[in-house]
Simulated assay, not measured.
Amino acid sequence: MATPSQPAPAATGAPAPVRRSRKIVLALAVLSTLAAAGGAAVFFMRGNAVLAAPAPKPVKPIFVTLEPLTVNVLPDARQRFLHVGLTLKVNDEKAQARVNEAMPELRSRLLLLLSNRDPAGLASLEDKLALADQIRTELNRPVAKGLPPQGIEGVGFTAFVLQ
């Protein structure tokens, strides 16, 4: 099978080129597998290190409940009233103390804000959400010049009756 221009592989003592290329391919496959395994190990170890870090402790919300209010709203064909209960979500204990100290002023502001309402503008969910935002803005105003805002984050309705 050997041709005159090529000597037989056994006669030269050199390994066959096919076997050398198989060894190279096998070596490259082993190296790439090890590299992939090492990369995966680093990836998962970093991921576990991030997951193992202690999560920040959630801040417990502080709520201040206001006594329910009943106010007359703008009359249409008949006399109408609004009965509303509110809970205020505040930033911290200092804000809670400021709200409790200023409660008479805040209730007065709330009565004035609610009594100047059109009953038709209080019917939909969007109207109630807008009202809650207006209440938060109004009650957050400082009660006196030089004092900080009340620190109210949100307003929640616990009762809402329009008759």
Rank of each mutant, 00 (worst) to 15 (best):
G121K: 15
N48H: 06
P119F: 14
N91H: 05
G146A: 11
L112H: 13
R109C: 00
A120L: 14
L82M: 08
A2G: 04
E138M: 07
N72H: 13
L162P: 10
L131G: 03
D92H: 08
E153T: 05
M103T: 14
P119S: 15
E105M: 13
K60R: 13
A16C: 11
R20V: 01
D76C: 09
L147F: 06
S108D: 07
M1F: 07
R98G: 02
E105S: 10
G38C: 12
D76Q: 15
Q79C: 04
K128F: 04
R117Y: 02
L82E: 06
L129I: 06
R80Q: 15
E93Y: 05
P142F: 09
P17W: 03
R80T: 12
G13L: 07
A29T: 01
S124I: 06
T70K: 10
T158Q: 11
F160C: 08
E126S: 14
V99Y: 04
L139D: 02
A11H: 00
V64M: 05
L106E: 03
F43W: 10
N72P: 03
D127L: 06
V50A: 04
G151R: 10
A132M: 08
S5D: 05
A130K: 15
P149V: 02
A130Q: 13
E138Q: 11
A8P: 00
P9N: 04
V64H: 05
A35G: 02
V64G: 01
K23D: 00
Q96W: 05
A77D: 05
T65L: 12
P7F: 03
L28I: 04
A130D: 09
A29I: 00
A144K: 14
G151H: 09
T33G: 12
V30F: 07
P54A: 14
S124R: 13
V30N: 02
V143C: 07
Q163N: 15
G38M: 12
R109H: 01
R78N: 08
I135R: 06
L51W: 03
G154P: 03
G154F: 13
A123T: 14
A144N: 10
Q6F: 05
V50R: 08
V161N: 07
A37M: 05
R80L: 13
M1S: 12
P7M: 08
G85Y: 10
R46T: 03
P9Y: 07
D133Q: 14
A52R: 09
Q163A: 15
V18S: 00
Q6N: 11
K128E: 03
A120D: 10
I152K: 09
E93C: 01
A95T: 04
T33V: 09
D76M: 15
T137F: 13
R141D: 05
I152E: 09
I62Y: 02
V18D: 00
E105D: 10
S108M: 11
